[in-house]
Every structure is written in structure tokens, then in C-alpha cells.
Amino acid sequence: MFVLSGYEYFLGFLLVCSAVPAIAIISSQLLRPKRQGVERRTTYESGMEPIGGAWIQFNIRYYMFSLVFVIFDVETVFLYPWAVAFNQLGLLAFAEALVFIAILVIGLVYAWRKGALEWS
């Protein structure tokens, strides 16, 4: 049996979302001037001159920030069912969730103390 009730709006949004980039590109193609020059081929017209290739090694700090983000992203996914079922679960589940959060707060404090959250 197939239900999917309430997804009509989702489908509508999906259609609109896929239409917007296509409309933007096609309309700018129709509206823009046809002249082509050297300046127009640069990445940022009348911006900074790009130097070197785009494929460079990134600082490892970016990776650290994204990893801290990933940890708390996963934490959110775990806590969401708890928050939805909060009324049916009672006090014990509240304490268990606090333990879960406390273990991750240890990690956050560690990251903070080690300066992983700072761009020094």
C-alpha cells in the first residue's frame, strides 16, 4: 500500500526548485549582451586577477571544523527521536539523554581546550 500523504507540497517544492536554476540560466542567456571580450572570460569580471590554478591544498583546519560539525550533526539525528517521543518516555529517558549529551560535551570541551574551534 502506498500512502505518502502530505508529500504533494514536497513534490511542488521539488518542481519549483528544479525549475529555478534552469530559468535563471536560460533567462540570463537571453538577456545578456552577446559581445565577448577577454575581460568577460575571467572568473570575476572587474574583480581580482586570479593567480595560479584552482586546485590547491586546503588548510587542514577546514577539515577539523567540518569534522566537529559532523559529530554534532550525528548527535542531532540521534536526539531528534528522543525529542519527538519526549512525552511518552518519562524521566528515565531524560536522564539517559543527558548522559548521551554529557559524553559529547566532554568532546566539545576537549575541542575547545585544544583550540580546535579557533582560527588562530
Binding site: L67, I71, V74, E75, E96, V99, I103, L104, G107, A111
Partner: peptide, 12 residues
């Protein structure tokens, strides 16, 4: 569920 948080802590 609780082990998952320990795993996340270890990864971090």
C-alpha cells in the same frame, strides 16, 4: 545509543 556517543567522542 549510548555507545554511539562514545564512538562520536572517540572520532572527535
Amino acid at each position: 545509543f549510548e555507545l554511539a556517543s562514545v564512538l562520536l567522542l572517540m572520532a572527535l
